[in-house]
Design a protein around this nucleic acid. Structure first.
Length: 842
RNA sequence: GCCGGCGUGGUGAAAUUGGUAGACACGAUAGACUCAAAAUCUAUUGAGCGCAAGCUUGUAUCGGUUCAAGUCCGAUCGCCGGUACCA
């Protein structure tokens, strides 16, 4: 890294102003009723998990963006709420505790300390008085309280379902925590295990969560991802009688119109009827199959299992439309967690069913007129119905409607809606989380802890090791587990599960509004003053889970009348990832950065072998040694450079590679700004016409681009102004002051310092944003382009608003143009005022 | 596979409604200053041809619409992110 030659004393300046803002409480905000509702803004960052690794360069990106926006809003007279806190429950601290015996609270609070210091060093304008940490008992008291409200609404229930089990962490994982069939945290392959879990009925809100996506200003891609995740589909549930039994098998299908093509059925291995369906000589085969699938992880059941497996149960079902007996199979390509865990298979028109039918020689019947031979491949597109009795000749829509009517008349099926969304497994067998505030009483059943007894504190334990039985470390503390029932006073046991990390982040934006309230989770007045969040900025990795869970809790609170808006986040912006360069061998393997040498510009070789490497873009990772540490950057270039560089790299929403070389350019710019005020004479004169025009254009562009979060182009324009100022020896103070105001939100430390040097006593944070005169931004001379057949052949400077006829005449007078049209026939003449003339010739 | 996003100089990137492609910055080259270097300043910098004026070409590839396409439409290729047999 090339340390810059330090000209401007950024280190001194930054320390000075950070201290000033803190001492003067410059960013503390109150609910000032004199500010009208439309001038109140709530700008929120996704709060970080305080990991031991400290701040990553990705964090300051979003934080700088919101900081610029907030400072800009304040200068425009807004009352801005801009808080920060920590999502401080989570596995890494607990895993560290298991390894070292250090209490997670100690680790976590050290990390928070470090994070806070690192964040403050960047000079963000947070109201630190509102800081919250999800692991503090004053905070999780209310997380527990909200859980109890959900519980009392019947939205929490216990369930024994097969869950993902990590043998290494000795704990259950939600589906969301499994990546590629492996434990997201430790990488161990996940197996299935049945365990008692608390589950939240998010599916009850599926329709609202889906419908209200229409009302928020979010990126379309995020809305679409949530839509797909909720996965609403319309179809029918159909009841199949089992041959020779009283039992029935219910299936969900989106294509009831293909019922005549259903030639067999499949139930998931976990289906409750499997035992009953298994007959005679199939018994041992089915049992063997069940045993084999139970051992399989999700990985093997999905990714690796291109080959369909299954076993015949020995039973048959009756197809309700034609009375035919069709075999019932058990196969793990049917999931117990979706629909009813059983399907009717239509192999002619479904690829999965077709593969299965081929493998096990099951009949394939065409019911949609196909362009291919369905014995050779499945036809999954539309077609007119055939071999289907009363719906023959109908199209898809009509056939579905007619079939549902037919099924409903005979009471063997109904129209039904299904969701991919599953209920949310809410308990964790962990220590470092909010204890679930419930008691199990032998006489009264499950009893909530009275609200006035919250928080239910996390007890001290001697060992953080999971019990290994699937229970949390809390289960091992007898004195904590044994309690009395709040209802009958008899002996009872505490719930030992804790909540997932998502719980704390589901409502932190509400606690910021009123962080010290001891009687309510948030007061009504404060909630109504600020909500909803006007702008929420964070990483795209939270597009589905965090945002869906938070919306769910918010909607429950809304239905209970506890919050005033039905959606929490009005506008969402995802910042792009900051990536890094990595170096790739011809075989596509990556080389750690410290093993690479740049032999000439953009030519890279591997030090050891001399082999030529290609520079590619990759995520920052420890193994590639391409992680950038913000502390080092601030040390060498200053916080202002760091902030400005991250914003100058490119648009906020896209991912972009970090290049420390680019930082030099930004540092140089700030140094130039500094020297401008040090070395040039600032006069009381009126600005020259040209400079004044650049000034007003700059105010206009910076104003517009800052309000739309297009920071990179705003910065370019400020560079243009500074370049102009360098061409003159002295410039008027109105320009000097305006430039400092424009820079203020972007590089607040140097701007404050320059503001003070210009003789101002008050902080720049109290100053109004500059205004521009539209008239002064308009050029009165324009370079007009003359084209022949769409190609530029001449350019001339003309006065603005020249009429079409004169522009055309001028073009035709041009010698250069005459050369190109001479001897040709003019077919068409196009004049775009103040832009161009295009003469089309043949 | 499916869903979403994106392909513009050596590099990061600009380009309100289709109207001068490459603003701004990095890097590079040359020069000034200096004993020298750094820093700073000035100039040049998409590619090709040309002494020059200038010409040709150029926004992943191919095709289309249009007086005019980075921008609109169709196909193909590549990269990134999400997801996983969802009946």
């Amino acid at each position: 890294m090339i340390a810059p030659m330090s000209k401007y004393p950024f280190s001194e300046i930054e320390t000075k102003w950070q201290k000033y803002w803190e001492e003067n409480q410059s960013f503390a905000v109150t609910e000032d009723e004199s500010v009208p509702a439309e001038k109140r803004m709530y700008v929120l960052d996704m709060f970080p998990y305080p990991s031991g690794a400290g701040l990553h360069v990705g964090h300051p990106e979003g934080y700088t963006a919101t900081d610029i926006y907030c400072r800009y809003l304040r200068m425009n007279g807004y009352n801005v709420l801009h808080p920060m806190g920590f999502d401080s429950f989570g596995l890494p601290a607990e895993n560290y505790a298991i390894k070292t015996g250090t209490h997670p609270k100690v680790t976590t609070e050290n990390n928070i300390e470090n994070f806070r210091k690192q964040i403050k060093r960047l000079g963000f304008s947070y109201d630190w008085n509102r800081e919250v940490s999800t692991h503090s008992s004053e905070y999780y008291r209310w997380t527990q309280w909200i859980f109890l409200q959900l519980y009392k609404q019947g939205l929490a229930y216990e369930s024994r379902t097969p869950i993902n089990w990590c043998d290494n962490c000795k704990t259950g994982l939600a589906n969301e925590e499994v990546k590629d069939g492996k434990c997201e945290r430790c990488g161990t392959a996940v197996v299935r295990k049945s365990i008692r879990q608390w589950v939240l009925k998010i599916t009850e809100y599926a329709d609202k969560l889906l419908a209200d996506l229409d009302s928020v200003n979010w990126p379309e891609s995020v809305k679409l991802m949530q839509q797909n995740w909720i996965g609403r589909s319309e179809g029918a549930s159909v009841v199949f009688q089992i041959d020779g039994m009283d039992d029935q098998l219910e299936v969900y299908t989106t294509r009831p119109d293909t019922l005549f093509g259903a030639t067999y059925m499949v139930v998931a291995p976990e289906h409750p009827l499997v035992g009953k369906l298994t007959r005679g000589e199939q018994k041992s085969a089915v049992e063997a199959y069940l045993e084999a699938t139970a051992k399989k992880s999700d990985l093997e059941r999905t990714d690796l299992a291109k080959d369909k497996t299954g076993v015949f149960s020995g039973s048959y079902a009756i197809n309700p439309v034609n009375g035919k007996k069709i075999p019932i199979w058990v196969a793990d390509y049917v999931l117990i967690s979706y629909g009813t865990g059983a399907i009717m298979a239509v192999p002619a028109h479904d690829t999965r069913d077709w593969e299965f039918a081929k493998k096990f020689n099951l009949p394939i019947v065409e019911v949609l007129k196909s362009a291919v031979d369905v014995q050779e491949e499945a036809w999954t597109k539309d077609g007119i119905h055939v071999n289907s009795d009363f719906i023959n000749g109908l199209n898809k829509e009509d056939a579905i409607e007619k079939m549902i009517t037919w099924l409903e008349e005979r009471k063997v099926g109904t129209k039904s809606v299904n969701y991919k969304l599953r209920d949310w497994i809410f308990s964790r067998q962990r220590y470092w989380g909010e204890p679930i505030p419930l008691v199990h009483c032998p006489t009264c059943g499950t009893v909530p802890i009275p609200e006035d007894q919250l928080p239910l504190l996390l007890p001290e334990v001697s060992s953080y090791e999971p019990s290994g039985t699937g229970e949390s470390p809390l289960a091992k503390i007898d004195s904590w587990v044994h309690t009395t029932c709040p209802v009958c006073g008899g002996a009872a046991k505490r719930e030992t599960n804790t909540m997932p990390q998502w719980a704390g982040s589901c409502w932190y934006y509400l606690r910021y509004l009123d962080p010290n309230n001891e009687t309510e989770f948030v007061s009504k007045e404060k909630e109504q003053y600020w909500m909803p969040v006007d702008l929420y900025v964070g990483g795209a990795e939270h597009a589905v889970l965090h945002l869906l869970y938070a919306r769910f809790w918010h909607k429950v609170l809304f239905d209970l009348g506890l919050v005033s808006t039905n959606e929490p986040f009005k506008r969402l912006v995802n910042q792009g990832m900051i990536t890094s360069y990595a170096y790739q061998r011809p075989d596509k393997s990556l080389v750690p950065t410290d093993m690479v040498e740049e032999v000439e510009t953009d030519v890279f070789v591997e030090k050891e072998t001399g082999q030529k490497l290609e520079r590619v873009i990759a995520k920052m990772s420890k193994s590639l040694k391409n992680v950038i540490n913000p502390d080092e950057i601030i040390q060498e270039f200053g916080a202002d450079s760091m902030r400005l560089y991250e914003m100058f790299m490119g648009p906020l929403e896209v991912s972009k590679p970090w290049a420390t070389a680019g930082l030099n350019g930004i540092y140089r710019f700030l140094d130039r700004v500094w020297r401008l005020y040090e070395e040039r004479t600032i006069t009381d004169d009126e600005p020259s016409k040209d400079l004044n025009k650049t000034l007003h254009k700059t105010i206009k562009k910076v104003t517009h681009d800052t309000s739309t979060l297009n920071f990179n182009t705003a910065i370019s324009q400020m560079m243009v102004l500074v370049n102009e100022l360098y061409k003159v020896q002295e410039f008027p103070s109105v320009i000097a002051e305006t430039l400092v105001k424009l820079l203020g939100p972007y590089v607040p430390h140097i701007a404050e310092e320059l503001w003070e040097k210009l003789g101002h006593k008050d902080s720049l944070t109290k100053v109004s944003w500059p205004t521009f005169d539209e008239k002064l931004t308009i050029d009165d001379e324009i370079e007009m382009v003359f084209q022949v057949n769409g190609k530029v052949r001449d350019k001339q400077t003309v006065s603005k608003d020249m009429d079409k006829a004169s522009a055309l005449a001028m073009a035709k007078e041009s010698e250069k143009i005459q050369q190109w049209i001479e001897g040709k026939t003019i077919v068409k003449e196009i004049v775009v005022p103040d832009k161009l003339v295009n003469i089309v010739v043949r």
